[in-house]
Computed example of a mutant assay.
Amino acid sequence: MPAFTIIRDNTPKTAIPRGAVVAMGNFDGVHLGHRAVIAAAMEMGRTHGRPALALTFEPHPRRFFSPNTPQFRLTDERAKLRLLAGTGLAGAVVMTFDKGRAGTSAQDFIYHDLIERLGVSGIAVGYDFHFGKGRVGSPSLLVSEAPRLGIEVDVQPHVDIDERPVSSSAIRMALAEGEIGEATRMLGGPWFVSGEVIHGEKRGRDLGYPTANIRLDGNCGLKHGIYAVRVGRGDGKSRAWIDGVASFGRRPTFDNGAPLLEVFLFDFKGDLYGETLDVAFIGFIREELKFGGVDALVRQMDDDSAKARAQLLAAPDAFPKLGEIG
């Protein structure tokens, strides 16, 4: 498979494939609604023999406009690009969202960024995508300009599940309530996080449950509790997924400290310190609880592990659809 190309603001114009089709959006989570836009761009590209790219923005525009407001992102930049690479797109255009970008008019964005710099031949967007200063750019503007520009524009309607529109905010809400199955359905695959394994208090080792500890973003809105998880290690052909059970929370039985993700990998022995792991959330088991003693906690951990194994056995094909980005 050809390498996934990432085009940034400093990429020379001569290195940008001319005539590409772009799927535009913020793509936080790369959920089913986003995937419909991507599929439309890829179909347009196949029809005309053109490469299909995602066009997205970093940091997320919400971070620029509301820097002091906590933002629970479903995917950071790297996770988003890996998911985009997993769709089969040829690459992604990552535009820096800063003061200059925020002040660019919709017309200038179309003519300077899309036509002159990128040389696009087609654009796919969702029905609610807006761009340009004051968010005055819209799908209808793109459609009206398309004939004069000689490009094709495809506007995708919203995607519904059980008569509820799929959206990044709906997925955040599901994760905040521990509704992992609902989040998975809207995403089209398990939600996952990535992080480096750090040293902890080593309590799990003493309890017979040594854990890989990962500090998540402070704005992570995942419900505190116990989860069935799959843990990804390595890249490319060496990549492996290992079943496990994880706790995300403040450890009320011990220190009630800062939120930490603690993952116990089933049937695994080895040193993971310093390694970056992917943790995919397959099912919710229970809320975080405070126990009166270690014995009661261990009995509960035994029960949690049994339930996690059962959930994972029932979901043999639940893996994030990731690609390699280098």
Rank of each mutant, 00 (worst) to 15 (best):
F4S: 08
R8D: 13
A15R: 14
I16F: 12
G19C: 08
A20I: 07
V21M: 10
A23T: 04
R35D: 12
A40L: 04
E43V: 04
R46I: 00
T47R: 11
T47K: 11
P51D: 01
P51K: 08
L55D: 07
E58V: 03
H60R: 05
R63Y: 00
R63M: 09
F72A: 11
F72I: 07
R73D: 10
R82V: 10
L83E: 14
G88P: 04
L89S: 05
A92Y: 06
V94Q: 01
V94K: 00
V94D: 05
G103V: 05
S105D: 08
F109D: 06
Y111M: 13
D113T: 13
L118A: 03
S121G: 15
G122K: 01
G122N: 05
A124C: 00
V125Q: 01
G126N: 02
D128E: 11
D128W: 04
H130M: 04
F131Y: 10
G132Q: 01
S138A: 04
P139M: 00
G150F: 04
D154P: 00
I161V: 11
E163I: 02
S168A: 15
S168T: 13
S168V: 08
A170I: 13
A174E: 11
A174L: 13
G178V: 09
I180R: 11
M186T: 12
G189E: 15
P190E: 10
F192G: 01
V193C: 09
V193Q: 09
R205C: 12
L207C: 05
G208I: 09
P210D: 13
R215N: 04
G218P: 05
C220S: 11
C220F: 09
L222F: 11
K223G: 06
K223Q: 15
G225F: 14
Y227D: 03
D235G: 11
G236N: 11
K237S: 15
K237V: 14
K237Y: 10
S238N: 14
D243W: 03
G244Y: 08
V245Q: 03
S247A: 13
F248H: 13
A258W: 00
E262I: 07
K269F: 07
G270M: 05
G270Y: 04
D271A: 04
L272Q: 06
T276C: 13
D278L: 12
D278T: 14
V279K: 06
G283V: 01
F284V: 04
G292K: 05
V294G: 00
R299I: 11
M301N: 02
S305E: 15
A306Q: 13
L313S: 14
L313Y: 11
A314S: 10
A315P: 07
A315E: 12
P316H: 06
P316N: 07
D317E: 14
P320M: 08
I325G: 12
